[in-house]
Lab assay of single mutants.
Amino acid sequence: GSPLAQQIKNIHSFIHQAKAAGRMDEVRTLQENLHQLMHEYFQQ
């Protein structure tokens, strides 16, 4: 897949890990990143 698709997959797993660790501030930051990446992805 594209590097962007790979990045989106990575962030999904980072979010999963951050949630499991209870780091909600990190989850929020990652979700904002994910949102931006998704936006770029669909602009392609």
Rank of each mutant, 00 (worst) to 15 (best):
H12P: 00
E32L: 12
I8E: 00
T29V: 12
I15R: 00
H39R: 14
Q31W: 13
S13D: 09
A21E: 09
V27F: 04
H35M: 12
H35A: 13
I15M: 05
L30P: 00
L4H: 03
Q36C: 07
A20I: 11
L34N: 00
Q7S: 05
I15G: 00
S2I: 14
Q44E: 08
G22T: 02
Y41W: 13
V27Q: 01
H35N: 09
Q36P: 01
F14I: 06
Y41G: 02
F14C: 05
E26S: 03
Q7W: 14
G22W: 06
A20H: 05
L30N: 01
R28P: 02
E32W: 13
Q17V: 08
M24S: 05
Q17P: 00
S13H: 12
L34P: 00
L30T: 00
Q31A: 07
Q31G: 04
T29H: 09
E32T: 08
E26W: 12
N10E: 13
Y41C: 14
G1D: 12
Q36I: 10
S2V: 13
G1R: 10
A18E: 02
A20P: 01
H16V: 12
L4F: 05
Q6S: 05
F42W: 12
A5G: 06
F14Y: 11
L4C: 07
Q44M: 12
A18P: 00
H16A: 14
N10C: 15
G1K: 11
Q17G: 03
L37M: 05
F42R: 10
E26H: 05
R23P: 01
N10T: 11
I8S: 00
F42H: 08
Q43S: 11
H35W: 14
A18K: 02
N10P: 01
A5C: 10
L37C: 04
A21T: 04
G22K: 04
T29L: 12
P3Y: 14
Y41I: 05
A20N: 06
N33Y: 15
E32K: 13
L4A: 03
F42I: 08
E32N: 09
Q36K: 13
N33P: 01
N10D: 12
Q17R: 12
T29F: 09
R28K: 10
H39F: 10
E32F: 13
S13K: 14
K19V: 09
L4V: 05
A5L: 14
M24I: 08
I11C: 09
P3V: 12
L4E: 02
H12T: 09
P3N: 14
F14T: 05
H12F: 15
Q6E: 11
A21R: 06
R23Y: 04
Q43P: 05
Q17D: 06
Q36V: 09
S2G: 10
L30K: 01
L30E: 01
P3D: 14
A21G: 04
S2Y: 09
R23L: 08
I11H: 02
M24C: 13
H12C: 12
H35E: 09
A18M: 07
L37F: 03
M38I: 11
S13Y: 14
H12K: 14
H16D: 08
H35R: 15
A5W: 15
Q17K: 11
A18C: 11
A20S: 07
T29N: 08
N33E: 15
V27H: 02
P3R: 13
R23N: 09
R28C: 10
I11S: 01
L34K: 00
I8L: 05
F14N: 07
A18H: 02
Y41N: 03
M24T: 06
I8F: 03
N33D: 08
Q7E: 07
R23W: 04
F42T: 06
L34D: 00
S13M: 14
Q31P: 01
G1A: 11
L4D: 02
Y41H: 04
I8R: 00
H39E: 09
G22F: 04
L37N: 00
H16K: 15
Q17H: 06
Q36Y: 09
K19H: 08
K9W: 09
S2A: 10
A5H: 09
S13Q: 13
A5F: 13
I11A: 03
V27A: 05
A20T: 07
P3S: 14
E26G: 01
Q44A: 10
R28D: 03
K9N: 05
I11Q: 02
Q7N: 03
Q36T: 09
Q17E: 11
T29I: 13
Q36W: 10
Q6R: 07
Q44P: 05
I11W: 03
I8D: 00
Q31K: 10
A20R: 09
H16S: 12
T29C: 14
S2T: 12
R28E: 05
P3L: 14
V27M: 05
Q17A: 13
F42S: 07
E26R: 07
E26I: 13
P3Q: 13
N33L: 15
R23F: 04
N10L: 15
G22R: 04
N10V: 11
R23T: 02
D25L: 06
N33R: 15
H35P: 00
F42P: 02
K9G: 03
M24F: 12
M24Y: 12
H12G: 03
E26F: 06
R28Y: 08
P3I: 12
F42Q: 07
E40K: 12
M24D: 06
F42G: 05
M38D: 00
L34A: 01
E26P: 01
S2H: 10
L30I: 01
E32P: 01
V27Y: 06
N33K: 15
N33F: 15
P3A: 14
I15T: 01
A5K: 09
A20Y: 04
E26V: 11
A21D: 07
F14H: 08
Q44V: 09
H39A: 11
I11T: 03
T29R: 15
Q31R: 13
F42Y: 11
S13A: 14
M24K: 04
Q31I: 14
A20K: 11
E40P: 02
D25S: 06
V27S: 01
S13P: 01
E26K: 06
Q6P: 02
Q31H: 08
Q7P: 01
E40N: 06
I15K: 01
E40Q: 13
Q7H: 05
M38T: 03
N33G: 06
E40Y: 10
K9V: 05
A21V: 04
Q31D: 03
H35Q: 10
A21W: 07
L4N: 02
F42K: 08
